[in-house]
């Protein structure tokens, strides 16, 4: 039991990653508000980012600048996540543009109301 505690307490950031991804999924599935689903998508994605940045960290490391002292953390995941963040904001922007159109057509961003409008 205490082993398990040790295992997880030495990996708190990974636990947080799992939680954030879960929260993101929850919002995506649960929310009736389409806008909020996009927020959920962002939570989901940033949770994954946390995984990458955590994996790059080393305890005695400094930022990956060669002018700095000592060993540095792993720069590669940072690069990947920089890319992913930009991808993320791009996706969000397109999602929002789509929602603007959905609203123009249905005058609501509530999923159940949209469904009703679609059926009628």
């Amino acid at each position: 039991m205490s082993d398990l505690v040790m295992v997880f307490s030495s990996r708190v950031a990974y636990v947080a990653f799992a939680l954030l991804v879960g929260i993101g999924v929850f919002v995506l599935v649960d929310s009736d508000n389409l806008l909020k689903k996009v927020v959920g998508l962002n939570l989901f994605q940033t949770g994954v980012f946390l995984f990458f940045i955590t994996s790059a960290f080393r305890r005695d490391g400094s930022a990956p600048l060669l002018s700095g002292p000592g060993p540095v953390v792993n720069p590669l995941p940072h690069v990947l996540i920089l890319t992913a963040i930009v991808v993320g904001v791009s996706v969000t922007a397109v999602a929002l543009a789509l929602l603007v159109r959905v609203y123009d057509e249905y005058e609501t961003l509530d999923e159940s109301e949209v469904k009703e409008a679609q059926q009628s």
């Binding site: 940033t46 790059a56 960290f57 400094s62 990956p64 940072h78």
Partner: peptide
């Protein structure tokens, strides 16, 4: 986590 570039972007 010593990722200043990512922090700035985030």
């Amino acid at each position: 986590f010593r990722a200043p570039d990512v922090a700035l972007t985030e």
